[in-house]
Design a protein around this nucleic acid. Structure first.
Lengths: 150, 150
DNA sequence: TATTGTTATACTCTATAACTATA
DNA sequence: TATAGTTATAGAGTATAACAATA
């Protein structure tokens, strides 16, 4: 399966090293996010929710699409965040079916603190990289994400 | 925040771009793992369990340490995997308290297929990178992981 | 009829606390 | 006493199916 005798010029084999590197790196970053969020009694999903609401006030359905979740899952997610005073539901004025979600001041305060912690931990993760490697990492990661169908 | 007038020579500020790049990249990889695992009715946690057992037959406690979970969580994890015929518990001969976990042929077959899918998807994620950038990514990711206290 | 959001239900994942068996 | 593993319990996260309200 790894060896293709005749293949298009645009195709190439993917090395096991690349797969392992990216997968392990993603688990390392996720571990940082999990630990930092837990410090504020949040799950990574709650962190992502607050991240989405940082500069938006989207309908429930838009949140579901962003997170790749079913709408019913987002109902519970927002329920729990709202119960803790981190977000608030508001009715849309133009369409009575739509519920908009926004962060509360408490939610924004938590995100600000969390951002500081996460930045520090990511910095520690990369502490042995040269400045040149850091720049390249940002460029390459950005290049990957730009062409990734989210 | 970006300008620090007095700081140690070993310290440096971490750019928001670096944090965003690594976090988003990790979510992209996790999304691939989630989708690929779901294709075989597995969670990412079950995938990690099978990954650990690829070349080991560890005690329950070792699995818990590897995954950063409580031992009781691993009990349920292995229960569900065993119920599906993917792993099997065996008694250790030297210490009657210890339970060893191994993959079954069915578990190894699933992992083989999953590996193919994941490799393909990671390859697609990186399809726009040059060969030089791929090498860089592997080298930098490896460098980060080598110095990361897992 | 189609869309938005919720509810009911069920399963996985996870932790804490208490327990059993063994060392 | 200490360690390995399980059980009981509780809660978060997720999906499917059915539903109400609105478009």
């Amino acid at each position: 399966m790894a060896t293709t005798t005749s293949r298009a010029t645009t195709s190439r084999t993917t090395s096991p090293e690349l797969v392992d590197s990216l997968v392990e790196l993603s688990f390392a970053v996720q571990a940082i996010l999990t630990r930092a969020s837990a410090h504020f009694d949040l799950s990574v999903t709650q962190l992502r929710l607050l991240g989405i609401l940082r500069d938006r006030t989207p309908p429930m359905t838009a949140i579901a699409e962003h997170l790749g979740l079913d709408r019913s899952s987002v109902t519970g997610l927002v329920d729990r965040a709202e119960r803790r005073g981190l977000v608030a539901r508001t009715a849309a004025t133009d369409d009575a079916r739509v519920t908009l979600v926004r962060t509360t001041p408490a939610g924004r305060a938590v995100m600000k603190k969390l951002g500081t912690v996460i930045t520090s931990e990511i910095g520690a993760l990369c502490r042995h990289l040269t400045d040149a490697d850091l720049d390249l990492l940002v460029r390459v990661a950005g290049s990957v994400l730009d062409t990734f169908p989210t």
